[in-house]
Amino acid sequence: MRIGVYLAHPRPGSFNHAVFDAVVRELGDRGCDVLAHDLCAEGFAPVLAAEETETVRPAVPARDALVELHRSEVATLDALVLIHPNWWGMPPAVLTGWVQRVLAPGVAYKLGTADGEPAGLLKAGRALVLNTSDTPADREEDEFGDPLQKIWAACVLPYVGVADVRRVVFRTVTDSADETRASWLRQARREAAALLV
Rank of each mutant, 00 (worst) to 15 (best):
N131T: 12
D134R: 07
G4P: 05
G120C: 12
V99C: 14
R189S: 15
S183T: 07
A182S: 11
A49Q: 15
N86A: 13
R2T: 09
D164L: 06
G145E: 15
R166V: 09
I83N: 12
E42M: 09
G125W: 03
A193C: 13
A79K: 07
G145M: 14
A36E: 04
V67W: 13
G4F: 06
N86W: 05
D64G: 09
D146Q: 04
E51W: 00
Y109A: 09
H9S: 05
D64Q: 10
P118L: 00
T55G: 03
A154Q: 13
R71V: 15
P46S: 04
A59S: 11
E26D: 01
S183C: 06
V23G: 06
V23E: 14
T132L: 04
E52S: 00
P147G: 03
A154D: 14
Q149A: 13
F15M: 13
G145W: 11
V160W: 06
E51G: 08
A59M: 11
C155L: 13
E141G: 04
Q100C: 10
V102Y: 10
A194Y: 05
L128Q: 10
G13V: 09
G161H: 05
E42Q: 14
F144E: 13
L69N: 10
F15I: 07
I83D: 07
G120I: 13
R166D: 10
H70V: 07
E42Y: 11
F20K: 00
C40S: 10
R167K: 12
V168A: 15
L7Y: 05
L195K: 01
E68Y: 02
R126D: 05
L111V: 04
H9V: 00
H84R: 01
P46W: 03
C32P: 06
A124T: 12
R186S: 09
A8C: 11
F144H: 11
Y109K: 00
G28W: 00
P10M: 12
V81W: 07
I3W: 08
A45P: 12
F144G: 09
L35P: 00
Y109T: 04
R126I: 08
D138Q: 12
E51P: 01
T132S: 13
D29G: 15
R126H: 01
D78G: 14
L77T: 02
T172N: 05
C40W: 06
T132A: 06
V23C: 07
V129R: 02
G31A: 07
